[in-house]
Design a protein around this nucleic acid. Structure first.
Lengths: 139, 139
DNA sequence: TCTATTTTTGCAAATTTGTCGCAATTTTGA
DNA sequence: TCAAAATTGCGACAAATTTGCAAAAATAGA
């Protein structure tokens, strides 16, 4: 997985620097991270501007993906590195549940893309609603 | 449709003001709008700060939904008012195609929510990739 | 309708986010 | 090991979003 990362960079002629390693490391969570999180996690290892630049690079290389979750966007490793791009987010308490890919959904999405002449690279699905706790009024 | 909007506000004890009407009006498009668009469309009818506050209110009432499309977020009326929350966005040229809801996808999503004890209110799906033009290298 | 109360607004200032230029540092390749 | 190219940190900026507050508008009750 780290090797895949390394080779993706190399393949496009980018070097594997400390800052890039730090940002990549900051993304190793099941839950998507805010930019704020990532900048904080990289403190001492990469400047804020570098983090932004790195995220842009990663996005263009398809290493990370930007998701809208609730009110702010978050970042997570893309399909190539992990596979939970489906999220349930609670409109009341803000809790987020990351769920694994659903083969039936995947298939349907590929079809949708195809009928529109689209070559799919990545995707995101967010379902907003009330989580089981809020639904029951237990907040 | 405007009546539904009116009653949603009333039901929660909010009044139907000129500013809120202006923001609601600015959202009547098939394509999702940027905050910038909306602020501009409301010029003379609502201050920027009010637009932001209104969008937050609308979001909490489930009137609008925030989507991540490509690099920036956009806003569109939620499920209750319109039904295209599926988007194909081209990672190369930035073009966006709004596609109508797919019943099979809908069904699958409801199931996903249900198995997680979730009460779904709204959703968004974005598929990123290359549009037919970029795929063919015609930009 | 008139008035007191509550809600909403506009404006300006403050924060937060994200970007840019450039000199200094690191990496790469010969 | 050295020169060229890529990357970084550090402000300074610029854009986006939030906040406080007094004025204006909407609401409910007499």
């Amino acid at each position: 997985m780290f090797d895949l990362f390394k080779s993706l960079l190399k393949a496009e002629g980018y070097s594997l620097t400390a800052a890039r390693k730090a940002v990549f490391a900051a993304l190793q969570h099941r839950e998507p991270q805010t930019m704020h999180n990532i900048v904080a996690a990289c403190r001492g290892q990469a400047d804020r501007a570098s983090v932004y630049r790195t995220i842009q690079l990663f996005e263009s290389l398809g290493v990370v993906q930007r998701l809208q979750i609730g009110w702010k966007y978050k970042l997570e490793l893309s399909d190539k590195f992990s596979s939970h791009h489906h999220h349930l987010s609670c409109t009341k308490c803000g809790r987020t549940i990351a769920i694994d890919e659903d083969p039936a959904l995947e298939k349907r999405m590929r079809l949708l893309a195809k009928t529109n002449g689209f070559l799919p690279q990545d995707h995101q699905l967010e379902i907003r609603g009330l989580c089981s706790l809020c639904k029951a009024g237990k907040s």
